[in-house]
Amino acid sequence: MPDDNTPDETGRALRAILGDVLGLGEQQLAGFTDETGLFGHLPELDSMAVAGLLTEIEDRFGIVIEDDEVDGELLENFGALRGFIETRLRG
């Protein structure tokens, strides 16, 4: 991934993925903050949708997410997921 992948860019790309996978409107996505809850908070996010979401994240960011990394914490809120992706992009 290019070095200019700033946090804002990651957040923007992650909002786009959430929009595509969950069919959320732009307004709802724009209102997402780091504290916005994901798994257990969004009715659209069932296990099949989480699987699709993780696959899209892998494809679009060019990263691999291992099974044991997928836990309640990873999907707790928007900030946690964004932080995970940023860490992985730097590594």
């Binding site: 296990s47 099949m48 989480v50 699987a51 699709g52 993780l54 696959t55 099974d67 044991d68 997928v70």
Partner: peptide
């Protein structure tokens, strides 16, 4: 292989919600 990976992942997640621990491998 990607299709299978996604299906396995969905099952792992659903099982975890149900309190059953089963990994992809």
């Amino acid at each position: 292989s990607s299709q299978l990976r996604q299906l396995l992942r969905a099952r792992t997640l659903a099982s975890r919600e149900a309190g059953i621990a089963e990994g992809g491998e």
